[in-house]
Design a protein around this nucleic acid. Structure first.
Length: 901
RNA sequence: GGGAGCUUAGCUCAGCUGGUUCAGAGCAUCGCCCUUACAAGGCGAGGGUCACUGGUUCGAACCCAGUAGCUCCCA
């Protein structure tokens, strides 16, 4: 059968993925083995795969495949997130296209559309992960809004409410006027923008008509909601205003002048207009000074009735209009261009309005304590470590978490209200009725209303590592006990607080590792799960970088700068894309994406493929005698492999994935293909390859299998394909479940010897290149050993790799030959063409100069009394050796120079 | 405004406890080669004042201080 020259991923990928699925290799059930568990960061259920997912999931798959091969019971739990704001926005947009307004629908009707949408598009992203080769246990696929998980969310809410951790109140929240919902602090992105700073005159009440105080504001549209002017108590400019009132322009409302050292005297005019309804700092001032709150901007970002002017117009339109009107009234002193930070909604990119509203909050002060402690004490490790600082800073300054969202898609808050302002928190309407009747005897069931809002999506995803193992539903279940705590979490630093920190909080809140403590909690009827292995949700958090385009911009749909991962896979193969991404993305570093990286990955696939073709094409002679050169080549590669495997294992243990891959890459490409295979490759005689001896062949097959295993986590498809082509195997004998090679201590002596051999080979090749000698022309080489004993074992290899007719040892210099000097010996290469003596002399002189310089630096060091006194003895011995070597080499070069002249 | 981090070859990054000629890797670049595994390849070559300025030290890419630039987080 003719094997194609290039590897074609198209014919292998789907085949092997189906094969793995068929034999349930991804499936995990608790058993006697040690578990290794990862829960996927659940992507948005209606999302499609982007490059960030690719990177993220590749890393997870590499980890899970390696651990699977190492004999762990590897379990990777997949699933999706209901992503309330994002999904609801998509559904609203889709309905709009159909001419349906959300406001015309009932909650039930809307949710019906949303579920339809979810059912239609919900599976896409998971299907795409299959293309990447993700070896998730698909039987375990979960969704944050499925019944069991939603029930857990509701129970947790009720539990935390009962513990007094959840409260409802009017607070200043971040309001998204487009999504029409509150969002948490973490969902606000502050961007620096160009703004205008307006200097506006406010008339002093009961004073001369010419008397004004000038304030500076970037938001003149909020003037209508002003309820005070604030200045610094120490500010000499305004001391005379004590006890005075000013008139708010346009609306002519009389408001007091208040004094507070919150004011920055330097900024603007040192006078601040106070709008408690529309700025968090103003709100705090308002609370402190007992100011009136006038909410002039409605939920949709348009001016409300309370504004009295410009009612119904958008705030940004009003900003321009009001500036113009003020100017016409002669109240604008000046307008400056400034840069300031403005908050945008993470989901809708609308400008966030600080807005007072009634929301539900989770107290964070005490509940977050163990989550901070256990990261600081190393119980949970962030990789790279630098994120620990950021984490600490956030956790020490954490605010209460606004968990209600004015949306329909999500878990509806289990709070119930009667018609008299009573509230209870419980699971069902029936329960609520009973509870409410205690206070409200006449209450009828129709008058019991559930809170309209849903919970923040993160209020469900923070339970993910517990709920995917049914920890809440079945707290003593085998799954939660076996798989929890999970091992590694792979995610983006952007969601360190949104998600990672909160999962840790949830772990310590709901899981108790202590049986007695658990019993105590049970008697108190708190929600609690006993897991002897610990409360933390995971041990290691691997934080990936952000995938950026060549210009360093974050890849995003709106910019259209993100390649379609599926197209990339079709073009370069899943293995190629995986390798491309991993090659240059150390943990925590951004990944500037360039397609050429995938090309490198694809080329690597091809290299492996061709190594297979070469080996596969050999005819084996069962009686053939193994040459000395082959024998030692086998010994060398065995040592090399072990050396590199030890290194690779070590890099994995430090989560240095890029480096583990690069080391593997070089092991395969350089050591195995470029050196080993060239060394043992049978010779070509009369247009035909000679057969290979069995001993070398068998060793080579074993090496190749080991190499395929080490490659497998990175390149699952090609390795599985070759695994089955290289030997007869049973259906279930797959590399995905093969054993990871065992690393033994390598033979360092042979590796050291080989470094010299390689140097010799490289020197001879360089001479060939420099003198333009055809690779086909056989050369003679002579070696004059000056130091140490003659080791002939490697001669065969040198002869083969340099295409020599002979390699001989001499005691004298060889005249009329090119030469090079190594530490221990001189080498002579006679060539047919004339030798340009001047060129040679120049070359040798350069070499001599270099070595003399080196010797000098060593001698300076050794003659330095302080060095000799302070340096470690090994260091001094080493310097002495360097000195001796350099002296020997200088001597040899000088002799050669003499012989040339 | 507060905090964290980064700056090493054209690009992306290693460089551990200061000590080998320690300045490295991959890619890219430049030569030569279509040598029966692979041109998606082979062989070879060039390329860096380790951001800058000082300091500590026998010795600094590495430790310290300052300066500049960049990034991120928080307000």
């Amino acid at each position: 059968m003719e094997i194609p020259k290039t590897y074609d991923p198209k014919i292998t990928e789907d085949k092997w993925y189906a094969h793995w699925q068929k034999h349930k290799f991804f499936k995990s059930t608790p058993d006697k083995r040690e578990p290794y568990t990862i829960v996927i960061p659940p992507p948005n259920v209606t999302g499609v795969l982007h490059m960030g997912h690719m990177l993220n999931n590749t890393i997870q798959d590499v980890l899970i495949r390696m651990k699977r091969m190492q004999g762990y019971n590897a379990c990777w739990v997949p699933g999706t997130d209901h992503a309330s704001i994002a999904t609801e926005a998509k559904v609203v947009a889709l309905l709009k296209e159909k001419g349906i307004k959300k406001s015309d629908l009932t909650r039930e009707e809307f949710l019906k559309y949303a579920w339809e949408w979810k059912d239609k598009y919900g599976g896409i992203i998971l299907k795409q992960l299959e293309k990447l080769g993700a070896s998730c246990d698909w039987d375990r696929t979960r969704f944050t809004m499925e019944d069991d998980l939603s029930e857990a969310v509701i129970d947790v809410f009720i539990d935390l409410h009962a513990k007094g951790q959840i409260y409802r109140g009017v607070r200043m929240v971040n309001w998204d006027p487009q999504g029409l919902t509150a969002v948490s602090d973490e969902e606000v992105i502050h961007k620096e923008v160009n703004s205008k700073l307006y200097y506006v005159k406010y008339k002093i009440e009961n004073s001369e008509p010419t008397e004004y105080i000038t304030i500076a504001t970037t938001r003149p549209e909020t003037i209508l909601g002003d309820t005070a002017i604030c200045v610094h108590p120490e500010d000499e400019r305004y001391k005379h205003l004590k006890g005075k009132r000013v008139l708010v322009p346009i609306i002519n409302r009389s408001v007091p002048v208040i004094f507070d050292d919150y004011i920055d005297i330097e900024f603007g005019t040192g006078a601040l207009k106070v709008t408690p309804a529309h700025d968090i700092n103003d709100y705090n001032l308002g609370v402190k000074h007992g100011l009136e709150v006038i909410d002039t901007i409605a939920a949709d970002g348009k001016m409300s009735e309370a504004a009295q002017f410009y009612v119904g117009e958008d705030r940004f339109a009003v900003r321009k209009k009001i500036a113009k009107d003020l100017d016409e009234m002669g109240l604008i002193v000046k307008v400056e261009d400034i840069k300031n930070k403005v908050g945008y909604s993470e989901r809708t990119d609308a400008v966030i309005e600080p807005k007072l509203s009634m929301q539900w909050f989770l107290k964070m002060d005490t509940i977050s304590k163990p989550a901070l402690e256990n990261v600081l004490n190393g119980e949970i490790k962030l990789i790279p470590e630098k994120f620990t600082n950021t984490y600490k800073h956030w956790m020490e300054n954490v605010h209460d978490w606004c968990i209600s969202r004015q949306l329909w898609w999500g878990q509806q808050i289990p709070a119930w209200y009667d018609n008299k302002g009573n509230t209870v928190v419980c699971k069902t309407k029936e329960e609520a009725l009973i509870k409410l009747r205690v206070k409200n005897l006449e209450l009828r069931v129709e008058d019991v209303k559930q809170d309209e809002d849903v919970l923040d999506t993160w209020f469900s995803s923070w339970l993910w590592p517990i709920s995917v193992f049914d920890g809440f539903k079945n707290p003593d279940g085998e799954d939660i006990r076996y798989y929890y705590p999970t091992n590694d979490l792979v995610t983006a630093p952007e969601i360190l607080f949104f998600w990672v920190a909160r999962m840790i909080i949830a772990g310590y809140e709901f899981i108790t590792p202590d049986e007695k403590e658990h019993q105590r909690k049970i008697s108190k009827k708190e929600l609690s799960i006993y897991n002897p292995k610990g409360a933390k949700p995971f041990t290691n958090v691997y934080l990936t970088g952000i995938v950026r385009d060549k210009q360093g911009r974050k890849m995003s749909k709106s910019l259209g700068n993100s390649p379609d991962p599926i197209e990339l896979i079709e073009k370069y193969g899943a293995d190629g894309v995986r390798v491309g991404m991993l090659l240059c993305s150390p943990a925590g570093n951004d990944l500037p994406f360039d397609e050429s990286m995938c090309e490198q990955g694809r080329n690597f696939s091809n290299k492996i493929w061709n190594a297979f073709r070469l080996i596969n094409g050999w005819e084996v002679n069962p009686d053939g005698k193994q040459s000395e050169a082959s024998k030692i080549s086998v010994e060398w590669f065995d040592a090399k492999f072990n050396e590199q495997l030890n290194l690779i294992n070590d890099l994995y243990s430090k989560y240095r994935m890029s480096e583990a891959l690069m080391t593997t890459y070089k092991l395969v490409w350089d050591d195995f293909c470029a050196w080993y295979l060239e060394m043992i490759k049978p010779e070509f005689v009369d247009g035909k390859s000679l057969p290979i001896d069995k001993a070398t062949y068998d060793a080579t097959i074993i090496f190749f299998e080991k190499i395929l295993k080490v490659l497998h986590p990175f390149m699952p498809f090609i390795t599985e394909e070759i695994w089955h082509l290289i030997a007869e195997r049973k259906e279930k004998d797959c590399i995905i479940v093969a054993e990871w090679p065992i690393a033994v201590k390598e033979n360092t002596a042979i590796l050291k010897d080989f470094e010299v051999v390689m140097e010799v080979i490289s020197n001879i090749r360089t001479i060939r290149k420099q003198k333009n000698i055809s690779p086909k022309e056989k050369l003679k080489v002579f070696e004059k050993v000056n130091q140490g004993e003659i080791i002939k074992s490697y001669d065969g290899i040198i002869i083969k790799l340099c295409n020599l007719s002979s390699f001989e040892y001499v005691n004298q210099k060889v005249d009329g030959a090119l030469s090079f000097v190594l530490k221990h010996a001189e080498f002579y290469v006679p060539i047919s063409q004339n030798i340009d003596i001047e060129v040679e002399k120049e070359r040798l002189a350069k070499d001599l100069e270099y070595n003399k310089g080196f010797l000098k630096s060593v001698e300076i060091k050794l003659s330095n009394e302080k060095f000799v006194a302070n340096a470690k003895p090994e260091m001094i011995a080493n310097e002495k050796k360097k000195q001796a070597d350099a002296e020997a080499k200088i001597k040899a070069i000088e002799e050669q120079l003499m012989s040339l002249s």
